[in-house]
Simulated scan of single mutants.
Amino acid sequence: MKNQSIKHFLFLTVIFLMFVNINTQAQNKQVKIACIGNSITYGSHLEDSERDCYPTQLSNLLYKVYGHNCVVKNFGVSGRTMLKKGPKPIWVEPKFSEAKNMAPDICIILLGTNDSRPDLWAKIGKEFYGDYKSMIKTFKKINPKTKFIVGLPSPIWKNHPYGGTAWGDKHNDSILVNGVIPNIKKIAKKRNVTSIDFHTPFENKVDLFPDYLHPNAEGAKIIAQMIFDIIEEKNMIQKVINKK
């Protein structure tokens, strides 16, 4: 009986130490999250862009659950396009190089708004799909286990002042709906990555977009919450920690 008690004690001790070791590894693992995007990601037109941008608000939500285990970095640059041949492609920006150097575990891509100019889309819109696929491949090459969340851009209302003086130079919601968004949906399906629709939920919430294009702090908060919810739904943090 005494030997059985000792064996039982040793067995429980081993199980306990294994649990402690696994838990310690999980606590020490930092999940790197990169937010790639344009002015909406950067936080343009917010009273305090650093505090109110969606990446910071997402970081705050994750901190409440995971503490310091999640590191969220904002690599948004205003006015940038996914199109490599666009007037201001994100590809050549130092921030994009920084994002690649981070080798993120989770990569959130929210681009396409600045690709929606009628003149630009008519000229090289057919290259959007290939350039988007190339971005996913770029990060996959650096970190094959990178998980992606691709965003369908929020609405563009016709009263916005950006893109030029002529209507043909202005970012256009119909191009988002009929060109950009279908391409992103196709990418998500083909590459088996997670997508989030930021367009439909905001269509009747123009009050959250004071300049008819950029969300205010409340709008950015909703974007952050939607991303947080999908990260939790897909159990992404634990999958990264467990290297799945």
Score class of each variant (00 low, 15 high):
Pro87Trp: 05
Asp52Trp: 01
Gln27Leu: 10
Asn101Arg: 11
Asp119Glu: 14
Ser49Pro: 03
Gln57His: 08
Gln57Phe: 06
Leu110Pro: 05
Lys126Phe: 12
Glu50Met: 05
Gln25Asn: 15
Glu47Phe: 03
Cys107Tyr: 02
Cys70Asp: 03
Val71Gly: 01
Pro94Thr: 12
Ile22Val: 12
Gln25Lys: 13
Asn21Val: 03
Thr24Val: 14
Met102Thr: 05
Ile90Thr: 10
Glu93Ile: 03
Gly130Gln: 13
Cys107Arg: 01
Ser116Ile: 10
Gly112Ile: 11
Asp115Leu: 08
Pro55Phe: 04
Ile124Asn: 14
Ser134Ala: 15
Asn28Leu: 15
Lys84Gly: 09
Asp115Lys: 09
Lys137Pro: 01
Leu46Cys: 02
Asn28Ser: 12
Ala122Trp: 07
Ala34Gly: 05
Cys35Lys: 07
Glu127Ala: 10
Val71Gln: 11
Glu93Leu: 10
Lys32Phe: 01
Lys126Pro: 00
Leu110Asn: 15
Pro55Gly: 11
Val77Phe: 11
Ile15Val: 12
Trp91Pro: 05
Thr113Lys: 08
Gly112Trp: 11
Met18Val: 15
Pro89Glu: 08
Ser78Trp: 02
Ser134Pro: 00
Tyr129His: 14
Arg80Gln: 12
Cys35Gly: 06
Asn23Trp: 13
Arg51Gly: 02
Lys133Asp: 15
Asn60Trp: 07
Val71Cys: 02
Lys32Trp: 11
Gly130Asn: 15
Leu83Arg: 01
Gln25Pro: 00
Val65Met: 08
Lys100Gly: 01
Ile33Tyr: 04
Pro55Thr: 10
Thr138Gly: 02
Tyr54Thr: 00
Ile15Gln: 04
His45Asp: 11
Phe139Arg: 03
Lys85Met: 04
Asn21His: 12
Gly37Glu: 10
Ile15Ser: 08
Lys140Gln: 13
Arg51Glu: 13
Leu120Asp: 07
Thr81Gly: 12
Leu61Ala: 09
Cys107His: 01
Cys53Tyr: 06
Trp121His: 06
Tyr66Gly: 07
Asp52Cys: 03
Pro87Leu: 04
Ile106Pro: 07
Met102Cys: 07
Lys123Gly: 02
